[in-house]
Structures are given as structure tokens and as C-alpha cells.
């Protein structure tokens, strides 16, 4: 078994990125993700990489755009208000079909909100976040180990599908310390013949671009992009099912909410209530299949979220309204307790 080290979630993301071959990080300070930047600032110069504190989130994401254009693995990280600023750049990355990794360690909003954990950027991340028709691959870790593993996975998927992957964590996941193994098999980046690395006078010039003024052409580009998204849906959808085989009550939860919910499921089982948990690991693409299946045998699905009810819409869509779907939530930086979730399970079971 590989050696484990005790790390904060934010640091695990940073070290995993380095393991994945990322040598360029651009960011701007914002709580509760600043440890990612601080870690990179220490490590990058020692391994011949680049850490640069940008003048803004907007500049940071555009520096990412530059490195991605040059064909290298690159990342930025931020928290909710900063991600809004990056929205423009993320849309341009999508329009130019550039691979990149963006980390969002969410905090409560809207506006400046607070600095405590939240999952209120679910809509923003799963629907794209910026202007235009596009998606990001959204990965939702639920442990420090997953913070690291999904960071590596994010780089690999970004390269594979030429799109932005987002690790969508929250303040708790970022600040939490757990033992983590950083012993990963990393798929190296593919050849990128489209990258703007200079023609060397050997080929026609490459163009990285999201502008397309001919509507017929722009339509084709959008359709082709969504055909690629279909492949992502088919090949990369990830989720965990816990005690779902005979479940009568299902919990839907991701990230920190899933950890809390797992405790509640265990307590419910002790009380003789057949509860189970479906934990989406990819929020986009959303795992429809386990919810569709659950709808055939559970009497209620409870969506546990740190927001006013965002993922619940996808749960309803996935279960095709064949079963009651309810919300159990806290917001503003508050986290539902296992007791709160257990109460919801007990109520649903009656």
C-alpha cells in the first residue's frame, strides 16, 4: 500500500496537479481556496514550473487560456465570487475547445456572501457558468483523497475531450485534513497538433479561436461540440451507490453533504429503515441511471444540499418524476447535520 500523507484538501489538489504534469498555475487570493495558490507558490519554482499571482481572476483565467493554447496542462483555482469573474474566460476556453482545469472551492453567496462552505454554485458549474452553449466536466470530491484523485482525472478528461474540467469542492473539503495517497497512474497528455507552438515553417499556421461570424458554421461547431459531450456522458459519468440494492428511501448528495448523509444512512439502517445513498461524482454529466433505477423501488428521494435546492432539479429529471423528491438543506455556510438528515429519512419512511 502506498504511503499516505496528512494533507489539507486544498494542498492535495495542488500536489495532485503537479503529479498530473501541471507546471503552470495562475490564481488570485480568495478564501477558502488560497492554500492552493500558496502551495503552488512554494512548489512550482522548485520543479521548474510557473506560479504567477495574477492581477485578477479574469487575468488568471486568460493566462490559463494562453498556456492551454500552447498545449500544456494548466490550472487555476478560486472560490465562488472569483469563479464568476472567470466565467468569461471559461466560456472562451469552451469556444476555442481548449483543455484546462478550474477548481472552485465554493463559499456561500450570492454577492460577496460568506467564507463558509456552500454548494450554491451547482447551477453555475453544471450549466456552464458563462455565456453560450457549453458544458464543463464537473467533478465533486467527497474526501481529501478524492480531491487529489479527481484533480488528476480532471486533467486527463480535459485533454481527452478538449474541454474545461472543474473540481467543484467546498470550503469544508478544502480545509479538511485527511491521510491521502498521491501515488497515481497518470495518463500523459495526448498529441496536440492544434496547439499554437509556432509553425517552425513546417506547417500551415494554427489558430486558436472562438469567433465564427457565419451562422451556418457556428451552428456546426456547436453541434459538433455537443456530439463530443455525448461521448463524455457515455464514457465518463461517475457515481457511488451506498446500500441502494434494497433501499426504500434514497438520499442524493455530493461532496460534504454525501459524507454527512452516509452517517445518517447508517443510523437509519440501525433503526431498521432501509435507506441508501446515491452520490454523483460527476455533476456534469449527471448520473441519471442510478436515479432512474431507484425510482422503481424507493418511495422517496431526499436531495441533501448546501443550497436552496439546485441538484434536486437534476434528481427530479433523472427520476422522471416517478417518485417523490424532497429537499433537506442548510445554506449560507451552514452544513446539514446527520441528525437533520436522519430526521428527514425517518419522516419519509412513515
Amino acid at each position: 500500500m502506498a504511503d499516505k500523507v496528512l494533507m489539507k484538501g486544498n494542498e492535495a489538489i495542488a500536489e495532485a496537479a503537479i503529479k498530473a504534469g501541471c507546471r503552470h498555475y495562475f490564481g488570485y487570493p480568495i478564501t477558502p481556496q488560497t492554500e492552493v495558490a500558496a502551495y503552488m507558490a512554494k512548489r512550482m519554482p522548485k520543479i521548474g514550473g510557473t506560479f504567477l499571482q495574477a492581477e485578477s481572476e479574469i487575468a488568471a483565467i486568460n493566462m490559463v487560456y494562453g498556456v492551454a493554447s500552447a498545449g500544456l496542462r494548466v490550472m487555476t483555482s478560486s472560490s465562488s465570487p472569483g469563479i464568476s469573474l472567470k466565467g468569461e474566460g471559461i466560456s472562451y476556453l469552451a469556444g476555442a475547445d481548449l483543455p484546462a482545469l478550474v477548481v472552485n472551492v465554493q463559499r456561500g453567496g450570492p454577492g460577496l456572501g460568506g467564507i463558509q462552505p456552500s454548494q450554491s454554485d451547482y447551477f453555475q458549474s453544471t450549466r456552464g457558468g458563462g455565456h453560450g452553449d457549453y458544458h464543463m466536466i464537473v467533478l465533486a470530491p467527497s474526501s481529501v483523497q478524492e480531491m487529489a484523485a479527481l484533480t488528476v482525472k480532471g486533467f486527463e478528461l480535459a485533454d481527452k475531450y478538449r474541454m474545461t474540467a472543474m473540481v467543484l469542492a467546498d470550503g469544508t473539503m478544502g480545509q479538511m485534513m485527511e491521510p491521502v495517497s498521491l501515488d497515481f497512474e497518470v495518463t500523459p497528455p495526448p498529441e496536440k497538433p492544434w496547439a499554437t507552438t509556432g509553425t517552425e515553417m513546417k506547417r500551415k499556421h494554427n489558430i486558436v479561436n472562438s469567433l465564427s461570424l457565419v451562422p451556418e458554421e457556428l451552428e456546426k461547431l456547436n453541434i459538433a461540440r455537443f456530439e463530443r459531450y455525448e461521448l463524455v456522458k457515455q464514457n465518463e459519468t461517475m457515481y457511488e451507490e451506498y446500500m441502494m440494492d434494497d433501499a426504500e428511501i434514497a438520499i442524493a448528495a455530493f461532496g460534504i453533504a454525501a459524507r454527512v448523509s452516509k452517517n445518517a444512512v447508517n443510523e437509519a439502517r440501525k433503526m431498521g429503515i432501509k435507506a441508501g445513498l446515491i452520490r454523483p461524482i460527476t455533476l456534469w454529466p449527471f448520473p441519471d441511471a442510478p436515479f432512474k433505477k431507484a425510482a422503481t423501488h424507493v418511495k422517496e428521494i431526499i436531495s441533501v444540499e448546501l443550497n436552496m435546492g439546485q441538484m434536486i432539479e437534476d434528481v427530479r429529471l433523472a427520476s422522471e418524476c416517478k417518485v417523490k423528491v424532497s429537499l433537506c438543506n442548510r445554506v449560507g455556510g451552514m452544513i446539514p447535520s446527520p441528525e437533520q438528515v436522519l430526521d428527514a429519512i425517518v419522516k419519509a419512511s412513515k
Binding site: 504567477l52 486568460n62 474566460g89 509556432g198 499556421h205
Partner: peptide
């Protein structure tokens, strides 16, 4: 990008120096 024979990047409004920073630091 349609006129210069070298590799070209189109960037968001105002962001070219940041994009250039990324490209230059990449190589």
C-alpha cells in the same frame, strides 16, 4: 488570425496581455 502566417490566437476583449503571459511562460 486570418492574415498573419504565424500561429495566432484570438482572445477575449482586453485580455491579450494575460493570454500572452500564458503563452510566453509556456515556452
Amino acid at each position: 488570425y486570418d492574415y498573419f502566417a504565424c500561429d495566432m490566437i484570438e482572445a477575449a476583449h482586453g485580455r491579450a496581455p494575460a493570454v500572452a503571459t500564458g503563452v510566453k511562460r509556456a515556452d
